[in-house]
Design a protein around this nucleic acid. Sequence first.
RNA 1: GGGUCCAUAGUCUAGUGGUUAUGACAACGCCCUUACACGGCGUAGGUCCCCGGUUCGAAUCCGGGUGGACCCACCA
Length: 818
Amino acid sequence: MGLPNKYDAKEAEPRWQKFWEENKIFKFDPDSKKQIYSIDTPPPYASSGHLHVGHALHYTQFELIARYKRMRGFNVYFPPCFDNNGLPTEKYVEEKFKISKAQTTRAEFRKLCTEESAKIEQAYADRFFRALGHSYDWDLLYTTINPEAQKVSQTSFVELVQQGDCYQAEEPTIWCTKHQTALAQAEVEDLKRSTKINHIYFDMEEGSKIEIATTRPEFLPACVGIFVHPADNRYKNLVGKNAIVPLFGSKVPISTDESVDMEFGSGILMVCTFGDNADIDKWKRHKLPVKMIVTNNGKLNEQCGKYAGMSLLEGRKAIIEDLKREGYFLRDEPIEQTVGSCWRCNTPVEFIVTKQWFIKALEYKDALIEQGRKIKWHPEFYRKRFEDWTTNLAWDWCISRQRFYGVPIPAWYCKKCGEVMLPEKEDLPLDPTTVNPKKNCKCGSSEFIPEDDVFDTWMTSSMSPEIAIRWLEKPEQFKKMFPVTLRPQSHDIIRTWAFYTILKSYLHFKAIPWENIAIGTFVLDPKGKGMHKSEGNVVWADELLEKYSVDVLRSWVGTATFGEDLGFQEKELVAGQRFLTKLWNASRFGMMHLEDYSEKPKKLQIMDKWILAKMHKTIKYATTMLDSYKTGSAKREVEQFFWHTLCDNYLELIKDRLYNPDKRGKEARASAQYALYQSILSVLKMMAPVVPHITEEIYQGYFAEKEGKKSIHISYWPAYDENEVDEEAEKAGDIAVDIISTLRRYKSEKNLSLKIPITKLEIHCETALQDTIKLIMDDIKDAAIVEDIQFGTNVDTPCSKFPIELGITLGEIKKKEN
RNA sequence: GGGUCCAUAGUCUAGUGGUUAUGACAACGCCCUUACACGGCGUAGGUCCCCGGUUCGAAUCCGGGUGGACCCACCA
């Protein structure tokens, strides 16, 4: 019985992690009648590098919620998972084996990717999830490339095509010329850069000249229209006439468009297919012809005459030189611009007309916003970001990618009539490049061309709730659990992961995918700047774990609030370290005095009722906060109660009763023991989700046996009981603390030891308070070493919180005899 | 250009209509009190960003600034 003097976290933490896993403490029970709390865990991309502290925080932040809900009596469904699908893996394999997709077959390449990711994931799970003490049910593990996930992804495709929400179209598509694949709007990021705006002349068919400004003269061969603002008097006479494209000689009509900015450049704008989004917009509205001049790998094509085969930049240079030589070049000026670029490689995107698969999103905007409002967002304001994105969406979702590694698009095209052939759902998952359709085409042909594109990774990720709770494998379970209770995720992927998941769930089930979405904390460096490898300000979680224990790191995580950024401060870890020590020592103190604790005595002393009242108020507050995902507020309140109310005041108040039972009697001692037991146990439980290892160690050292539980993490969260909140006792206790604190300050200001006894204490206050004070006289005597208390008027020291004044007569400190 | 969030002691931070404005770190003074010196008790430190409004009363609500972070759009 009793705890050792020091807590050895390095020894204890792995021991408990092993205990939890071996005893399946976090196992989901499919047969349980308890209410289910399910989590749509974000599948991390498992890397072999260091662990970013932001990543550790992000995953631990909602892990706390899982632990909390488990203690609240929920049957928690918490699957671990990995994202090993898509470009990151492909890129990793290309680099590791120094191969490219051109040098290998699709099947071989995919095999390499699968093998490599499995290896990395195993290591990652050990040094990340397990090391941080995460409470997943490992039997529920899934990865985004495993057959079941692929089946979900492909089934989604087949169903959406069948119901008309997924279609194939030949349209301008956002294109990465480096990866040679189509991209979705959400995969495009801003790239700020300096370039030159070139002012050039166009000849008019009739003979005059006009001036046009362009940053992309290489698009001259693709020029299909020229526009001026309808109110621009300078150019009224041009409208309806043709201009001649310099160097290329084609005739282009001049029209008006409201969107032209008269102030910019010369006020005359050319539209090329396709230099940017604005070109596409005008091309669509004015039904202009298409002149595609860019190849899939970013070169000028045969439409460009002598410039064919040049890269876009080479073409630009050559065309500018020729414009200069021919006298069409007026001048250039430097300009700052922001262009869209591929989120993976930063290559500026182009717009190329290709045949791609799209999922309808534009026509469901209103419905999606409606769905978003049915979900509880934590914090609420992030819903706005979702709504803004949805409102401003300009494209349907392009889901096809011209890559190797990824979920194959399950479709074939009839060689004869071109009709799309889909597989039967029960045959999924499949790779159309290795199997043929089981039926002939409607036209009778049995020859097919397989689709060899793969899905955008979000095609699978957007089905994560369905994959997590086994939509196709366990339809009964799915019915019971959908929508999932919680989606935790970061704010930067609201427009992708959250958006697509809500879209999919709407298209398939006309339902919301989850009841709650919690936006994780974003970690900043101590100066409040984002952590970036290139700036060298990244803090690595694995390095912190060498210096501090897991519980210390988690304690810091516990201070975070969902949706709010958090600056990393190492001193916060020191605070966590101290908290653990304090918790350990206070628990040690408790156990020292609880060896002979049996049960609740018939009558409780006033200060014991006081601490119980404070404790229940803390329980109520912490519970309310955690129920609304405010972990930081809950933790702060519990710590405040523990450190200041319980340790600094209550433990000091009851020492005399505990150590000297003869003085105030066995009943008084038993009463203190009861309140001590309850308050320490409550603190341990309320802190257990945050610091699971040390609380387990303490719990197992004493409370587990009393409560008959295998682990604190499946014990019951302390229950708030308003009958335990005795307002009268609470007030009396507060007065006692106020008086004791005033006496401490009195001694402290005189630079005296707190051990100096007070021989006589006179108290002056309203008669109404006197009865209350009589209740706590013995406690004041115990805690502040007061020999005699009486009511009187010879006073000069006011208390700080209550209208009470004190008269203090000090005695002499008794020297200890050695 | 549009939007969201934020602004409180040297630093970080709590606090959504009435508190003597919370706590932590740092500073200073005292105290080795039998759980803990990784501790305890105190002290000092604030125009709650600025201006206006609502209100009996504003750090808190509203409007307008200023500064910062992020999201979206975007100039041919």
